[in-house]
Design a protein around this nucleic acid. Structure first.
Lengths: 229, 229
DNA sequence: ATTGACTCTGTACCACAGTACGGATCGTAC
DNA sequence: GTACGATCCGTACTGTGGTACAGAGTCAAT
């Protein structure tokens, strides 16, 4: 008992193109009856598509759904892994809610402060927006005379970057960061202290940059900030 | 007192390309010193960019910000229009929160119902997902369990590698390895369990290989061995 | 036999908010 | 004078989840 793609799409509540898209993405297998080249689907295929939609409604991305479905197919997989995915997603959702609630509070404040009439030149909302922006502006960059164009000649002039690192859990993390840094081009020596939550990197600025080094650390899942000494 | 694009970008806390992008989008005017063709910016330009970022943080899209900024420049515009935009956005945010809260409730339910261990074949979460999907179906076609043809020919053929890892010290190490793996080309998803000392990697074998993945983990200073399942 | 509905593959396109890059030019410090 | 950084412009690419064709082939009914 099989159906063509249009019937399967209708049964699953999606479009024909969507099924083909899922197939391209590797979410569903490619069924084919080579007689005429038409795809054929059964109830299982339709059920799989419906599961995909359901998981999407719970906020899972197609990538995550693929993982979930591959877990389902794996007899060695443990239920705990599925649960972990769900928990991670719940936390993600919670974070998004918290973020949106902060936004809502800010908007409520702006709306309450607005008289609701009058010229825009005196609009409290736009004013507040400007001021909120200005308040944050204090930190990003000391834009005074700090644009010193430091020209290093062809000689290799080493620089030292000291960075504060957040997110280390143990000495092992420190070792990991050290290894990560040594993989970067131009890094001469790197010492990472778990106790001090910091790294000291001796590097060739013509081969890499502070930004790249910071980025290398952050690729490892840590937060790094340059220590202004 | 003017600055070039890089200094303005630093002052506003954005990238150079972002400023040029905003200019293309019409969010900021095109300043130019025809002498050398270099854009020049002043404090007002920087303030405008900062307002854009601030409005973005409140959830406004660039399109909406454009509207807000054009209202600000229009002497005939009324404050009520600005207020209306803010109210609309607040309602939008509220809807999103409500939606996410429903998702959170559903996830909480699934997680609570899950024993957290055991074979995935009896996983209550995946079961529930299937049933939720079925419940919505107008007419779920009868399942004939006998017709299980599994054609796994896919255009994107994903593989799963499960590896045992030695040398992890904490959850942070697990996170690091996860990040390391996600940097590898072809890696779709990676989950690393500190408790189980193992990693599960979902990858595209045409873009990488088990060996490369093992090597990637070992570059982080850990020892990885493929689990023969 | 011809219509009309359906299917095939492959590619391009939508929104969104940028990021990256190639090749050219400009400014300047050594 | 030459190397290097910063800038220019234009285009292409990122990720996410699909949509929308074009041009060709297939199926069932009339």
């Amino acid at each position: 008992m099989w159906m063509t793609i249009a019937r399967a799409a209708r049964a699953a509540g999606v479009g024909v193109e969507t099924i083909r898209f899922y197939e391209r993405r590797g979410l569903i297998a490619q069924p084919r009856k080579p007689a005429n080249g038409f795809r054929e689907y059964d109830a299982d295929s339709v059920a799989r598509i419906r599961i995909i939609r359901q998981a999407q409604e719970l906020g899972f991305s197609l990538r995550e759904i693929e993982e979930l479905l591959s877990l389902r197919a794996d007899p060695n997989a443990d239920c705990a892994e599925v649960r972990a995915q769900a928990t991670t997603k719940r936390d993600e959702v919670e974070q998004k809610i918290a973020h949106l609630e902060r936004i809502r509070a800010a908007l409520d404040m702006l709306i309450a402060a607005c008289p609701g009439k009058g010229a825009v030149t005196a609009c409290s909302i736009l004013d507040a927006l400007t001021q909120m922006a200005d308040k944050k502006a204090t930190k990003p960059a000391p834009l005074t005379a700090s644009s010193i164009r430091k020209r290093t000649t062809r000689r290799i002039l080493m620089k030292t970057l000291v960075a504060t690192i957040e997110g280390m859990h143990c000495e092992g993390c420190a070792e990991t960061i050290k290894a990560l840094l040594k993989m970067e081009p131009g890094v001469q020596t790197a010492t990472v202290s778990f106790k001090e939550r910091s790294a000291r990197i001796h590097f060739d600025p013509s081969a890499t940059s502070e930004g790249s080094l910071i980025a290398a650390i952050e690729r490892g899942g840590y937060k790094a900030v340059r220590q202004t000494s």
